[in-house]
Design a protein around this nucleic acid. Structure first.
Length: 503
RNA sequence: GGCGCUAUCGUCUAGGGGUUAGGACGUGAGAUUCUCAAUCUUAAAACACGGGUUCGAUUCCCGUUAGCGCUACCA
């Protein structure tokens, strides 16, 4: 079968929280690599830390990955012939290999207590030595050790680290070499019988025929232990690619305390998945030439290259994400207007401006609102605030706001407002953009005001602010909005003018 | 403490023994508009430091410094 020599990669998160952008980026790079090479992408759930793992997080994780569009070929939900894909379902396998390692003398039983180990560590540290395990239990005769364990003594299983330097290759860092002196015999199975991450990850990767291990570089220092395991089991060592850390603006590891950092956060804010994907790809990767910034997921699959991934850590820049998001919102508004407006509707509804559902007429109207305001907005979540001038009108605030004081104090303001109000009063029915322009022109002729001194007072009367979108587009939106009879009613131009004069 | 990784504008990055060190976000200015946003044009802005190697280092090597990671019977 052709797929036999194709790369097999995996994303292996622990279900201990929401999918974080750091992990999402790892998932993305794995996905890009698999898709462009025609390889297989596997989702594996690493839930050996039972205390911190929760089923709800797995569901959430899957939803987040799907939202990003990172589909996998094998996984707990998708199945596959290398399953099960949840570590908690693979315990037997881990124990079988542990027995084999013990039998072959590649691993040994360790009877040291946590206190002993801790004391040893402290002593080494004080002597400015690497805090390695002394290897005390290595000398115990295996048969003797088995006897002690059978007699009820608690024992962990340790891997015997070889006496030679450990080398491996990393696609982003190049050749890496660790002296065996700095890696001590790691525990692979706890005395409780629960296997340890650094052990199970190797068993799983090997069993699942993973060819390229693409993961965060916080695993780099643990890789020698894993390589030693591959060698002890006589398995081929895969290719590695350790991705740099994503940092917050303070150059510390990106975390919740930096604000929005989980995929779910961004989704809830109204960031488009392709914007997030595009941005994450640019964190540590750039195309040859380095001048292109905008890539759809499909384009990324074509252009991406693991060899071009930078090893240095990157600071997450929200502004650049927003810039890309504006681009993708605009793009979606033209390519998939229906779905985009439905999505935008949820934000207006959350703000209390619209009901849960809008009829086709209402949706068309909302589309004009969104089309008008979206270019100035970083994320869909900000739309209602920008649209407040349409949905909310406060005559008193309009008159008393300090922001408006300067305009209100202008010489011709009173005359402009009076003239404008009178003309609007005599209008009947919906005021069109053309009609509105005519009225403004009449006011202009009557008062002699022009430019700013003409438009700003009128703008304050209508919107409560001296700045906002152009009247040509705003007036029809207000008038049509009023005609819609929304539960949270949009006031017409006439109603606004009346309220202004009354209040 | 030990070991490892990393180091180009504020940020993401391209580049590479001789370059006007390129692009993008952000920032400033201008254009446009009644105004804001968007848009367009434009400007400022970087090779961490010290030693080598070399005719010549930002680029290669070594150190220093700084940041981060690992050093768990966490993942």
């Amino acid at each position: 079968m052709a797929t036999e020599n194709k790369p097999r990669v995996r994303f292996a998160p622990s279900p201990t929280g929401h999918l974080h952008v750091g992990n999402a980026r790892t998932a993305l790079f794995n996905w890009l690599f698999a898709r462009q090479s025609g390889g297989t992408y596997i989702l594996r759930i690493e839930d050996t830390d039972l205390e911190r793992s929760e089923a709800q997080y797995e569901t959430q994780l899957i939803a987040d990955l799907k939202w990003l569009g990172l589909n996998w070929d094998e996984g707990p939900d998708a199945g596959g012939k290398f399953g099960p894909y949840r570590q908690s379902d693979r315990m037997e396998l881990y124990h079988d290999y542990a027995k084999r390692l013990l039998r072959e003398g590649k691993a040994y039983l360790c009877f040291c207590s946590a206190e002993e180990l801790e004391a040893e560590r402290k002593k080494a540290l004080a002597a400015q030595l690497p805090p390695n395990y002394s290897g005390k239990c290595r000398a115990i005769d295996p048969a003797e050790a088995q006897k002690r364990r059978a007699a009820g003594e608690r024992a962990a299983i340790r891997l015997h680290i070889p006496e030679h330097p450990i080398k491996f290759h990393d696609m982003v860092h190049g050749p890496v070499e660790f002296s065996n002196e700095v890696v001590s015999d790691p525990i692979i199975v706890r005395s409780s019988g629960m296997p340890v991450y650094n052990y199970v990850v190797v068993i799983d990767d090997a069993e699942m025929k993973i060819t390229h291990v693409i993961r965060g570089d916080d695993h780099l220092s643990n890789t020698p232990k894993q390589v030693a395991l591959y060698e002890a089991l006589g398995w081929p060592v895969p290719e590695f690619a350790h991705l740099s850390t994503i940092l917050g603006p303070d150059r510390e590891r990106l975390s919740k305390r930096h604000g929005a950092t989980s995929v779910a956060n961004f989704r809830d804010m109204g960031v488009m998945p392709e914007a997030l994907v595009n941005y994450m790809a640019l964190l540590g990767w750039a195309p040859s030439g380095g001048t292109r910034e905008e890539f759809t997921p499909q384009e990324l699959v074509k252009e991406f290259s693991l060899e071009r991934v930078t090893p240095s850590p990157a600071v997450f820049d929200m502004q650049k994400l927003y810039w890309l998001n504006r681009h993708y919102v605009a793009h979606r508004l033209t390519t998939a207007p229906q779905a985009t407006i439905e999505l935008a509707l949820t934000f207006f509804t959350k703000a209390g401006y619209t009901p849960d559902h809008l009829d086709p007429k209402g949706l068309t109207w909302l589309q004009s609102v969104v089309t008008l305001l979206a270019p100035g907005v970083d994320k869909l979540e900000d739309l209602p605030a920008r649209a407040a001038m349409i949905f909310k009108y406060d005559a008193t605030a309009a008159k008393t706001s300090p922001d408006n004081a300067e305009v209100m104090g202008l010489e011709k303001t009173a005359a402009v407002i009076a003239s404008f109000a009178k003309k609007v009063q005599s209008e009947s029915g919906e005021i069109t953009a053309e009609r509105f322009k005519a009225i403004v022109n009449e006011v202009k002729a009557e008062t002699g005001a022009k430019g700013k001194e003409l438009f700003h007072p009128i703008r304050i009367v209508i919107t409560g602010s001296h700045s906002g979108p152009e009247f040509d587009k705003l007036i029809p939106i207000i008038e049509q909005g009023a005609a819609l009879g929304l539960p949270a009613r949009v006031l017409s131009v006439k109603e606004r003018t009346e309220a202004f004069n009354r209040g």
